Amino acid sequence: MVDRAFAYAISAMQPKSAQRAQPSLPDYRVRVEARSLDGLAGQLSGLASDAGHGRLWAVADAPAELLALNTDGQVLSRHPLDGFDGVSGIASLGDDRLLLVEKGRHTLVVMPAPQAPDEILRRHGRQALRLELPNSDQAVEGIGYDRAGDRLFVVQGHAPSHLYEVRGLRAGLEGRAEVQLIDRAAWIGDKFVARDFAAVKYDARTGHVLLLSNASRLILELDDQGRFVAYQPLAAGFAGLHETIPQAVAMSMDDERNLYVASTANRFYAFEPD
């Protein structure tokens, strides 16, 4: 668990230029804490911001389901995912298209955003791409998409996790070219504060990568060279949290840098820049 002495220690690692950046990850305050998403049979496993519509997309597993949420964590609609196997992450590709990942198959599937409130989303016939990851026996935990650069960041496995960058995603999905897989182990290999990552997101405003560690109960921010920039503890007393987030499993960020986190027991958290 993150305690204050530990937090002060890793704060000293933060470059002065990052400390002047506004807003940075430590400058958050919780707005919604531990809202329960009642009625779900499965466990939330991924979050993605849908900036064009002011909402969030969430995926749950066992049974596989897509949910539309408002930014307070209230469920707007629910959509069964037919034919999917172990959905563990979601990203918005823009233009009302969603990218889902099947954790065991290491397969990316493109789906149109649902238009009807109870629309069933079927996997059959959808555009898909299997990632040839070196650690084939480890599950994919989360994905984060850089739309401008057409890059996908992939977190795989636990203790330690693996981080990959996939370049040329659109061409790969369309079958026009092979994707380029880059191992970003060097970005996380020296981050002693966290080795166990459950989710990854790309922040288009800064070009930084955010990594969620459920074991260390924090979010790390890395720059485009993999250097440590900032962190956000998810423990009680930080960002106004009354209680520690027990086991964070998913996160997302919108265009205003509002931060959203989901935990086990299907609890929802929203943070805003302080």
Rank of each mutant, 00 (worst) to 15 (best):
residue 155 V to E: 00
residue 161 S to A: 09
residue 187 W to F: 03
residue 156 Q to M: 01
residue 151 R to M: 11
residue 176 R to P: 05
residue 162 H to V: 11
residue 192 F to I: 07
residue 161 S to R: 04
residue 207 G to P: 07
residue 213 S to E: 10
residue 226 G to L: 08
residue 166 V to G: 00
residue 159 A to V: 11
residue 155 V to T: 02
residue 217 R to L: 09
residue 171 A to W: 02
residue 175 G to A: 11
residue 198 A to M: 04
residue 192 F to N: 04
residue 221 E to L: 04
residue 198 A to T: 07
residue 138 Q to E: 08
residue 136 S to W: 14
residue 201 K to V: 12
residue 150 D to V: 02
residue 196 D to S: 09
residue 225 Q to D: 12
residue 190 D to Y: 02
residue 140 V to R: 05
residue 199 A to G: 04
residue 158 H to K: 12
residue 177 A to L: 03
residue 171 A to K: 08
residue 168 G to Q: 10
residue 169 L to I: 09
residue 155 V to C: 00
residue 205 R to V: 12
residue 163 L to S: 10
residue 218 L to K: 08
residue 221 E to S: 14
residue 182 I to G: 02
residue 152 L to S: 01
residue 177 A to G: 03
residue 188 I to S: 04
residue 219 I to K: 06
residue 166 V to T: 05
residue 208 H to A: 12
residue 176 R to I: 07
residue 145 Y to D: 09
residue 212 L to F: 07
residue 184 R to G: 08
residue 204 A to P: 00
residue 201 K to M: 10
residue 184 R to A: 03
residue 198 A to F: 06
residue 155 V to M: 02
residue 138 Q to R: 13
residue 188 I to L: 01
residue 142 G to H: 02
residue 203 D to P: 00
residue 150 D to T: 02
residue 150 D to Q: 04
residue 155 V to R: 00
residue 165 E to K: 08
residue 189 G to Q: 14
residue 178 E to C: 06
residue 172 G to T: 13
residue 164 Y to M: 03
residue 176 R to H: 13
residue 178 E to Y: 04
residue 197 F to C: 06
residue 161 S to N: 06
residue 142 G to M: 01
residue 143 I to K: 04
residue 222 L to N: 12
